[in-house]
Design a protein around this nucleic acid. Structure first.
Length: 693
DNA sequence: ACTGGTCCCTTATTGGTTAG
DNA sequence: CTAACCAATAAGGGACCAGT
């Protein structure tokens, strides 16, 4: 099988040419403790005071950094709308605040310009009051990811020599600076005045926060200082304060839109809802609006690179966004960021980088394929794990079934051709109707009309365990004229919220007839899903359904479709299932009470077993790029495997504790040893991408 | 009334450090 | 060296809110 890639990774050039040089180890080591200290300063202050202090400190830090980088040029004026009077209230350790700000500014002034702005941005975000930060989704892009995003833009065909680029939510300029860098590289031989003109004409950032936009602009000013000196002109205004969602005269003019927009649920007024009707349905999220906005800004044939939560890949409330993107700006590649934590400070959101091309009406036949990758983001590197090409579902708005990990490649492929859904198996899904948090009901154990109440903790792969209920929860429910809430027939119960980190996303147990017979009915709490037979005789028996849903294969299949911690009824209805006719061997195993491993193996076969082995693996021509390793360990410099290493090759233990665990260096091991799950052998895990370990 | 998504909080666990 | 303690992290439950 040839894994044709529209966006091949250029291994010879390296993934992120300037990342390692951009990340001065001194800064990497010394800045975070200062930022933590800074966060303490504002943690307990009233919001307005904290905001004031944050802005003052950033101003001071920027002044310090500027003095180091361009002492001969004037620093751009602080936004007039924000009060500039130094550290505001002496009561809150002002000297310490000033010292901190200067210290951060000095460190920022040491590194490259991109590093300086990202450091200033990080200072700002760590000082911002939490409510403010959350309300506006202020989480700036780490430099490694920003570099990767501009790299993707290049792969999507952006010509940095003439491209017009905009970031409608630019924050402190994390994406503007790498873009500027690429533009400058192409303008190297041009007269200085022309360079300034070109940058001013072709690069633009917008942010709601005038101080953030100012930091971004100061970064641009710093970078353009040499050209300014030559011409005696100031740098052009690139970053503007304003609302990135507002329509402008420049819609459809940009060759590239780069954005890590803010996230967060919204309450929309009717006008805004109508304005973004194409891309939102149900409960809207801010980033969906920015996605539509990004498409509107892009010219036909132009490219978009967006960093968003994964939720839109499968969630019900993002069906309109999926439909919109599929028709207006089909994704070329989707790259899931595997770590939920540690990439964005204080965020538990699972995120994804999507590269799209704006439709140009030229009838791009045969589209619908997406290049999937997983990104393992370290503190100063990104490891790219190729997951192959995958087809988007033809049905508009349907969840996109895409692998998030290498191990899901085969299952994701197979799912694309599986036509059956739960409805075809003879089942419907609904959420448990009883609100267990309703404390108005007293414990009714043993009273008349009381029926068993089933909570999530009663459901496990081992079966149903009633009257199990956690502390403070009643295992009984008194039906008070709401008998329609009760379940009277056997069904499958499935936990409704499971963490992404859990080994299994799907946890199911059969509600047997005996519990129903002894009590007449049971109540199902809201955090369980109910999979109930539609007719008297479903195409697949309950026990077989249970076996499939409890299998690792089904859990992995579900992971390919879900983006949030919820196991929603919507997603369950869309989960591809094997043809009922193919379930004969599994039914026999279940009926015979076969051991779990045999059942597990059969479920895996049902999902992925029919694929040839070659297809079950991600592309062998793919590359893994491990810049951070090379940077820290000279012995490993240049270790960027371009092809599959032979079994028997000696592996070094992992060198990046952030990525692959801590502890003393492990001894070298031989490829082919059982290295799976051994975190000290990061390389071993890398090689598992190739299907070797 | 029902459903879905997300955030936050509590609890359990783990890993690391230090006193005895 | 062991036990106790503490901090950080993971897991999972609960609450809340908004849309249908």
């Amino acid at each position: 099988m040839t894994l044709h890639t529209t966006l091949s990774i250029d291994t010879s050039a390296g993934l992120v040419p300037d990342v390692t040089s951009l990340l001065d180890p001194i800064l990497v080591a010394e800045v975070p403790p200062l930022l933590r200290e800074a966060a303490w300063l504002t943690a307990d202050l009233p919001e307005a005071v904290a905001l004031d202090l944050a802005r003052s400190m950033v101003h001071l830090a920027a002044r310090t950094a500027w003095a180091a980088q361009a002492p001969d040029l004037p620093l751009r004026a602080f936004p007039a709308s924000v009060d500039d009077r130094g550290i505001p209230d002496p009561a809150y350790a002002p000297e310490k605040a000033q010292d901190l700000a200067r210290a951060v500014g000095r460190l920022a002034g040491l590194g490259t310009v991109a590093q300086a702005t990202s450091t200033l941005g990080a200072l700002y975000t760590s000082l911002l009051p939490r409510p403010q930060r959350k309300a506006h989704g202020v989480y700036y892009t780490p430099p490694t990811l920003a570099a990767l995003m501009t790299e993707r833009a290049g792969e999507a065909g952006i010509d940095w020599h003439r491209a017009r680029v905009i970031d409608p939510a630019c924050g402190a300029g994390a994406l503007l600076l790498p873009t500027l860098e690429r533009m400058l590289a192409r303008l190297a031989d041009q007269p200085a005045g022309h360079v300034l003109d070109e940058i001013g004409r072709r690069l633009r950032g917008i942010d709601l926060d005038p101080v953030a936009a100012w930091i971004a602009q100061v970064g641009v000013d710093m970078r353009l200082a040499p050209w300014c000196r030559q011409t005696g002109r100031p740098a052009p205004r690139v970053a503007h304060a304003g609302c990135g969602l507002a329509a402008s005269a420049e819609d459809g003019c940009y060759d590239l839109v780069l954005a890590n927009p803010p996230y967060g649920q919204l309450r929309l007024d009717a006008a805004t809802r109508a304005r973004f009707a194409q891309s939102i349905n149900g409960r809207a999220n801010l980033y969906a609006l920015f996605c539509q906005r990004a498409v509107e800004l892009t010219r036909p044939g132009g490219a978009l690179v967006l960093l968003t939560p994964t939720g839109f890949l499968g969630g019900e409330y993002f069906a309109a966004l999926r439909r919109y993107l599929a028709t207006e700006a089909a994704p070329l590649s989707i790259e899931t960021i595997t770590a939920r934590k540690g990439v964005f400070e204080g965020v538990q959101q699972e995120t994804v980088v999507t590269t799209c091309r704006r439709a140009d009406g030229a009838g791009e036949g045969g589209q619908g394929h997406v290049e999937m990758r997983a990104l393992h983001v370290g503190s100063d590197d990104v490891v790219v794990e190729p997951l192959g090409l995958h087809l988007l579902p033809a049905a508009a708005g349907a969840p996109w079934l895409l692998p998030r990990r290498g191990s899901q490649h085969a299952i994701a492929r197979a799912m694309g051709t599986m036509p059956a859904r739960l409805a075809d198996w003879g089942y419907e899904v609904r959420t448990g109707p009883v609100d267990g948090s309703d404390r108005s009901r007293e414990d009714c154990a043993g009273t008349a009309g009381a029926v068993p109440m089933l909570w999530p903790e009663a459901v496990s792969a081992q079966g149903l365990d009633w009257p199990r209920a956690k502390r403070g929860r009643s295992a009984w429910y008194r039906a008070t004229g709401q008998e329609m809430k009760l379940v009277t027939r056997p069904c499958l119960l499935l936990q409704r919220t499971t963490a992404l980190e859990q080994p299994r996303r799907l946890v199911a147990a059969v509600l047997e007839v005996d519990l129903l017979q002894s009590h007449g009915a049971v109540a199902i709490e809201n955090h369980l899903n109910i999979l109930a037979p539609v007719g008297p005789c479903p195409a697949v028996p309950l026990e077989v359904l249970c076996a499939v849903f409890n299998s690792v294969a089904a859990s992995e299949a579900f992971r390919c479709l879900s983006g949030s911690t919820a196991v929603s009824a919507y997603e369950l209805r869309h989960l591809p299932l094997p043809d009922p006719a193919a379930l004969v061997p599994l039914s026999a195993l279940v009926a015979a009470g076969a051991d779990p491993e045999a059942i597990e193996a059969e479920c895996l076969r049902l999902y992925a077993g029919d694929l040839p082995a070659a297809e079950a693996r991600p592309g062998q021509d793919a590359a893994i790029i491990c810049r951070g390793w090379a940077a820290r360990r000279p012995a490993h410099r240049g270790w960027v495997p371009k092809d599959v290493p032979a079994p028997g090759r000696t592996l070094a233990p992992a060198l990046d504790p952030k990525l692959f665990g801590k502890g003393p260096a492990a001894p070298a091991a031989t490829l082919g040893d059982d290295l799976v799950g051994r975190r000290e052998y990061g390389l071993g895990i890398c090689l598992s991408f190739y299907g070797y370990c």
